[in-house]
Design a protein around this nucleic acid. Structure first.
Lengths: 395, 395
DNA sequence: GTGTCGGCCGTCTGCCGACAA
DNA sequence: TTGTCGGCAGACGGCCGACAC
């Protein structure tokens, strides 16, 4: 089952029905985001969820937030439902997930479940992403389409006409139609979107630095998405709940669900979030129990570029320790302290989680008699003797 | 100490400093809203807070929300801090309050504390509120100022000039300046705001049906606020937390604060909120223990009119019972079921709280041997023998 | 190959009194 | 008294190629 080909029905909170294009959602989310598959088992990290709330409210976690001693740093959950959404006002993409913590018996049965690594995020093939210039967003003119992009994703123009032009119709995440006049003119010749463009810019409140994405899918449909630049303080604090109360809320909701093995609902905001906090169980198990890491080991990690593609950065593991040993002792969230080869002044986080990195096993490894943290039994799971290399079908 | 004359410093979440005009805040909040005074004692109703969250997220409380058995339906709190705020995007007014539940000893001492009824909301005297017409918001023209309003709140024009005109400078809730050309012209003559008006309309995204408020204060300063019409679904669900999680959050935050007698922070949104959920302790005590009500009794209650003034509606008490006897047994929140004389099809709520109404004691009362609910001791408070009519300085 | 500009035309903004509700 | 309209003048939107980086 692949999410990418599915058309989701979203009920969200008001009961409206919306058919959201999955390719477009993923294009807006970025190349590194992949959603776990509904029906699979995942690991949920309240600590990471807390980071998302902190990022969304521009507020660090205070010392006032109570601990939830009964709440483990990670919950193994059944993922019942995943739906993709986009904020009606801002087009911000997010996903809603319904999770249910496994009870003790189900946790024991985990070792019998076949691997569920989740389909990798299917990035669309025929698409382009352009960061808007001052001229693109000015009222004075239209949108200058990069030549290769226009030739790749737009329907071919009839070059026998002078000038060659056509009408493009593209749908956004909400299914709204946007019409543009696509023309090839000027000296030297270039592709431009003229009529209709400024309506789109003002409706979406785009400014120079934001990006637009055009997708030509396999059904010969044109889609259109936006990705706003990381403007500081774009998301203001809600006037509904204090950020402290929100933190308490997510912790209490998770603790309640964990205690009663009942369902709870979370929102995952890939653009606001520093790291995924709901990851496939198989990915977690592979990283934690089938990967040998130690201090001094070198690794690679994927990052998104400004042009919405990926590149790898190299680094070295400098320590393995709790990120927050007061609130979240023995948590595997961001337990790996790293140094980066290219020191672009703190641009990349100094702490990562084990499942985010690729250790370079081609290099001779340091002596490491034990797989990392095997001494620490998984909370709530009696043992992991059922796991051996290859048992989960992962290599 | 009156809030109305104080200039509050708001730290909110980002540490920005903002000086918010209290008169303007109250004018935007409406004539019925009065904030309790910082330093006084108040009663906080999680049930009412829950209603605000439900109204803000357009979602009713689900059956999934766990009960917090340790959380009483009302908390007597010390109010440490009250600050007025306005949403930077929408100008929506709200207040932030820091509450601290009283410990047992402090609750016993309550009867020794002098009355704190809170200064009544000081509505500005020199102000007007106009609901915008289609012409007012159209790009075709300016703003037509009602004659009496212009003569009352705007500085007088020099009628010797032809036409009489002046420049007005008004500040909004954020302290931003807006300049308008105020001119008296036309046949017949009328007051108009021309140049500058359309910039304001588009910046605030005003539409016909919204209202504007102009205030001329005692320091000869002009202020300007807006009150949006109650458009359905204006507030969309947040993409940060599910409404269930928010509900759990406010309950858990209150329960934690009540258990540890520690401070917690809430946001009060007077426009979103059906009823105040933080009320002065003295007002609560007077209503609960010094007012005799019974089924069949007639009462009056204040409501806001469309023109931002107040009027009284009359009604009859039809029952006294728990609003939600499963989740909030023995709660005084909306415990009075009423019928309204003017049946404008469910416009007014069928349930109110005792402190919201004025029983008509001038009418002969029904036989009622006991003050309402005196049989129910106040949770956490051993007795109320210290209270007698007049002891609190209330009449 | 593409970002920005000057030129130019057409539409819409926005100020006015007329008129009617 | 005030909401809406037609008339009109000027500002700005928006399409074009020139030009430079």
């Amino acid at each position: 089952m692949s999410l990418s080909s599915t058309c989701f029905t979203s009920q969200h909170e008001e009961g409206e029905k919306k058919c959201l294009n999955s390719e477009l959602w993923h294009a807006c989310s970025g190349p590194l985001v992949s959603l776990p598959v509904a029906g699979s088992r995942v690991v949920y990290f309240p600590q990471g969820h807390s980071e998302q709330v902190a990022a969304s409210t521009n507020k660090n976690v205070d010392a006032d937030i109570p601990n939830y001693p009964g709440l483990p740093p990670q919950l193994i959950c059944q993922l019942h439902n995943v739906t993709m959404h986009a904020d009606a006002e801002t087009d911000e993409v997010y996903a809603q997930m319904t999770l249910q913590p496994l009870n003790l018996q189900e946790q024991k049965d985990v070792c019998l479940v076949p691997a569920e690594l989740g389909a990798p995020s299917k990035q669309p093939t025929n698409y382009f992403c352009k960061t808007l210039t001052a001229s693109d967003t000015s009222t004075h003119g239209g949108f200058s389409v990069p030549r290769r992009a226009a030739e790749k994703v737009f329907p071919p123009l009839d070059y026998s006409k002078q000038p060659p032009a056509q009408e493009l119709i593209a749908r956004d995440l909400h299914g709204n139609e946007w019409k543009f006049r696509h023309i090839f003119r000027g000296q030297p010749k270039r592709h431009l979107l003229t009529t209709g463009w400024s309506v789109f810019v003002s409706a979406k409140r785009l400014v120079a630095g934001d990006s637009v994405i055009f997708i030509w899918n396999d059904n010969n449909q044109l889609f259109l998405g936006i990705r706003r630049a990381n403007r500081p303080q774009t998301i203001m604090p809600s006037a509904v709940l204090s950020s402290d109360t929100m933190h308490i809320g997510l912790l209490a909701a998770a603790a309640h669900a964990a205690a009663t093995y009942s369902r709870f609902t979370i929102f995952y905001n890939p653009r606001a979030c520093p790291s995924d906090f709901v990851i496939p169980l198989a990915k977690y198990v592979r990283a934690m129990y089938h990967t040998q890491v130690s201090v001094g080991m070198r690794f690679r990690m994927l990052f998104e570029t400004e042009e919405s593609s990926v590149r790898r950065y190299m680094g070295t593991i400098t320590a393995i320790s709790d990120f927050d040993h007061v609130r979240w002792p023995n948590s595997n969230w961001r337990s790996v302290k790293v140094g980066w080869d290219e020191s672009t002044a703190g641009e990349r986080q100094p702490r990562v989680s084990l499942w985010e990195i690729e250790p370079l096993t081609t290099f001779p490894m340091y002596q490491s008699p034990y797989p990392m943290r095997l001494k620490r039994p998984w909370p709530g799971l009696p043992s992991f003797t059922g796991f051996k290399n290859g048992d989960m079908g992962i290599n």
